[in-house]
């Protein structure tokens, strides 16, 4: 890997620090396609790099390379060994080195996007790895998911409700879902997204631009969505909520 050959001493910090944005969310909600959308919309404005985390393969990295949204070498995969949530929260070293290498090898980069391996509703990024994070849900997961809360839904910097073009096929009221989510988030931003609806893509791009501005002005302070919140386990009787105290 070129990163390893050219990397500086592991003890030295990279010269150029990018805005690091994490993209988390359950399996299949469209994290990779959201990243592809962001790259497509913003790659003329910003120099972007992407780190993917996959459990079994480097499928996500290959998908993004195939989409042709960035030069292939600016998309790298980290193998997380069966524990995608560990790699973004408990033990971020692999991802941190990948981000630092990327920043070093392609300096100056404006933004590095880190895609978590698809996990569950409770996995969020540690602020030691990223500066801000998106949490991606989709309408196909059901209109009630947003009400269930959890650290990602409740406190990620941006909650994306994806695939809204599918809402009518899965009987989900997007407005209601956005309203539920907004309520669950104490007013923090919620964005209804479809890669087929340009206006929603523009809104997502604007959010990133504003974040970038706030990051450079020092106005943006990375916050931790927090540990696993009381969360929901489905069972035959409808499920229960418990905590990890």
């Amino acid at each position: 890997m070129t990163a390893e050959e050219t990397a500086p001493s592991p003890t030295s910090a990279p010269q150029t620090r990018s805005l690091r944005i994490g993209v988390a969310g359950p399996v299949g909600t469209g994290k990779s396609s959201t990243i592809a959308t962001l790259c497509r919309a913003l790659s003329d404005e910003y120099r972007i790099g992407v780190i993917t985390n996959d459990i079994y393969t480097d499928e996500d990295a290959r998908f993004l390379r195939a989409e042709g949204v960035l030069p292939a070498e600016r998309i790298r995969a980290v193998e997380t060994g069966a524990c995608p949530h560990t790699a973004i929260r408990d033990d971020v070293t692999m991802n941190l080195l990948a981000v630092e290498d990327m920043e070093q090898d392609f300096a100056p980069l404006d933004i590095v996007l880190v895609e978590s391996g698809g996990d569950n509703l409770t996995a969020t990024f540690s602020p030691s790895l990223i500066d801000a994070q998106l949490f991606v849900l989709d309408v196909a997961g059901g209109g009630d998911v947003a009400r269930k809360g959890g650290p990602g839904i409740g406190r990620a910097d941006l909650l994306v409700i994806n695939k809204i073009d599918l809402a009518e096929y899965v009987d989900v009221d997007v407005e209601q879902m956005v309203a539920d989510a907004t309520a669950a988030r104490d007013g923090k931003p919620v964005l209804a997204l479809s890669r087929k609806r340009q206006q929603s893509i523009d809104e997502l791009s604007d959010w990133v631009r504003q974040l970038k501005g706030k990051y450079h002005s020092g106005e943006h302070v990375p916050t931790d969505p927090g540990p696993m919140a009381p969360h929901f386990h489905a069972d035959e009787d409808g499920g229960y909520v418990h905590t990890h105290e």
């Binding site: 193998e79 069966a82 524990c83 971020v92 070293t93």
Partner: peptide, 11 residues
Amino acid sequence: GRLPAGGYAHS
């Protein structure tokens, strides 16, 4: 093994 140095990804 819980030292955060990425060892958990290897068998």
